[in-house]
Simulated assay, not measured.
Amino acid sequence: MTGEGGALVRGVNGLEPAPPGRKRRAAVAGVDGLPTLLSNAETFAQVAVLAELGPAGYADAGTSREPGTILLTVSGGAADEAVVEVAAGMPLATVLDLCGAEPGDGVLVGGYHGSWLDPRTAAAATVSREGMRLAGGTLGAGIVVPAGSSSCPLGEAARVASYLAAQSSGQCGPCRLGLPDVARALGTLAEGTGSPDAVRRAVRGVERRGACFHPDGTARFILSALDVFADDITTHLEHGSCGRPVRGVLPLPEAAAEPDCRLDVDWTRCQGHGLCAHLLPEFVDLDESGYPSFRPIPGWMLKDVKRAVGMCPALALRVTP
Rank of each mutant, 00 (worst) to 15 (best):
E4N: 15
E4Q: 13
E4V: 14
N13D: 15
G14E: 06
L15M: 13
G21P: 04
G21Y: 04
K23N: 01
K23Y: 13
N40K: 10
E42H: 14
T43R: 03
Q46P: 02
Q46K: 12
Q46H: 14
Q46D: 06
V47L: 10
L50K: 08
E52I: 10
A59Y: 09
A61D: 07
G62P: 02
G68F: 07
I70C: 00
T73W: 03
V74C: 00
S75M: 08
A82K: 12
A82T: 14
L96N: 01
L96G: 04
P103H: 05
V107A: 00
G110M: 03
Y112C: 01
H113F: 10
S115K: 14
L117T: 11
A122N: 04
V127P: 03
R129W: 07
G131K: 03
A135M: 04
I143E: 00
V144R: 02
V145F: 05
V145H: 02
S149G: 11
S150A: 15
E156W: 12
V160H: 02
L164K: 09
Q167L: 12
S168Y: 05
G170A: 05
Q171Y: 06
D181I: 11
A183Y: 06
L186A: 05
G187A: 04
A190P: 10
G194I: 08
A198G: 13
R200V: 13
R204G: 11
R204W: 14
R204P: 00
R208I: 08
R209M: 13
A211M: 14
C212R: 09
F213L: 10
L226M: 05
D231H: 13
D231L: 12
H239F: 12
G240C: 09
G243R: 11
G243Y: 10
V246C: 02
R247K: 09
G248I: 12
L250G: 07
A256M: 10
C261P: 02
R262V: 15
L263F: 11
R269H: 12
G272Q: 07
C276L: 05
A277Q: 09
H278Q: 08
L280M: 09
P281D: 00
V284N: 00
V284G: 01
D285W: 09
D285V: 15
D285Q: 14
D287F: 03
S289V: 08
S293R: 15
G299W: 10
G310Q: 07
A316F: 04
T320M: 00
P321A: 10
